[in-house]
């Protein structure tokens, strides 16, 4: 294969390709050589602490700001050379619900339809479809300023889906929403990916990233720290753990012994005497759990809680980005 055909095949496989993307604001390097690839039709979660460069990355990829270095292709087109073509293939939902507050939901969608260069009849028809899809028909003729946060968000999402975008950028789409509102947004996103849309999602809710993403990229200080599937990331931080919570401190040594027998690598379990908690990493999760449970039952130990704990993305995140934080403080101390 020649380089050109290789590139073409790659462009078909990935909807978002970023190579060495950089953005500088004064002295501050907001994004520092980001490499990112999002496979067509998948959801990629972009995670990172405040100021990591997530929004800046999304803004470069959605043609809002010009990168200072590197290159990026979205929907098969270069974001700097052909922003016009990129814009026809993307939808963007930013950190705010960017809809018109004074107009009604229906007027908003028709207006955006017109601005996406649909004819009047097509813009009207598309507005009705989206209102139905996002359960906004009942409120369609109310002014947006009377909407709840969840309704606003849904309208905002609807507006970014007018052209059924190939790539959808969602920058913290559920920030400030209650659990119902978040679920509504998740359903909308899942509905979209089912039709083949590629999604790049930033969020501070790791359960959200876990639920929605096929692939997760963690960045900090403008650089990628790691990327993997949600399961892979969790595995990397440590596998399952067996955890027992006791009623009586006297049972601690016996329990520790039982847990130690199933612990991975035969390491001694960790014991939290204040909370009467014993836990240890295990490899064969379910088998280990049943064995410990049987042993404790046979010994007549009163158990308040026993279970298999899987690491959450929160732990992954804290472990990964905590390291970077330490590094900077060390650097600062050295100066």
């Amino acid at each position: 294969m020649t380089a050109a055909t290789e590139a073409a095949a790659e462009a078909g496989e990935y909807s978002v390709i970023a190579e060495g993307l950089r953005k500088q604001y004064g002295d501050k390097t907001a994004v520092d050589g980001l490499d990112l690839r999002v496979r067509r039709g998948t959801v990629c979660g972009l995670l990172g602490p405040n100021g990591a460069g997530k929004t800046t990355s999304v803004r470069m990829l959605s043609t809002l700001v010009r990168p200072d270095g590197g290159r990026a292709e979205v929907g098969g087109h270069d974001v700097v050379r052909r922003p016009d073509l990129v814009r026809r293939r993307i939808g963007l939902t930013g950190q705010h619900a960017a809809v018109d507050e004074i107009l009604t939901a229906r007027q908003n969608l028709r207006m955006f339809g017109r601005l996406f260069h649909l004819g009047h009849p097509a813009a009207r028809a598309r507005a009705e479809e989206l209102l139905a899809q996002f359960s906004l028909l009942e409120a369609a003729d109310k002014q947006v300023k009377t909407f709840s946060g969840g309704m606003r968000r849904r309208l905002d999402l609807a507006a970014s889906m007018i052209l059924a975008p190939e790539v959808l950028f969602l920058d913290e789409p559920t920030t400030g929403l209650d659990p119902r509102g978040r679920r509504e947004v998740w359903d909308a996103v899942r509905g979209l990916t089912a039709t083949g849309t590629t999604v790049l999602l930033t969020t501070h809710y790791l359960d959200e990233a876990d639920k929605l993403s096929d692939w997760i990229c963690v960045i900090d200080q403008g650089r990628k720290i790691t990327e993997d599937t949600p399961a892979g990331l969790k595995r990397a931080v440590g596998g399952d753990r067996v955890e027992v919570v006791l009623a009586d401190p006297a049972d601690l040594p016996l329990t520790a012994g039982a847990v130690a027998r199933v612990a991975a690598g035969g390491r001694p379990p960790e014991t939290d005497e204040a909370e009467l908690r014993v836990h240890a990493p295990v490899t064969e999760g379910v088998a280990a759990l049943t064995e410990v449970a049987r042993e404790l039952q046979d010994a007549g130990v009163a158990v308040l809680d026993i279970g298999l704990r899987r690491p959450t993305l929160d732990e992954v995140f804290l472990r990964l980005t905590g390291g970077a934080e330490r590094e900077t403080t060390e650097k600062e101390n050295a100066v």
Binding site: T63, R87, G94, H96, A98, V99, D100, F112
Partner: peptide
């Protein structure tokens, strides 16, 4: 409110 950004991300 990000309305201008939305316009700028559109064709």
């Amino acid at each position: 409110r990000g309305v201008i950004d939305r316009f700028r991300s559109m064709p």
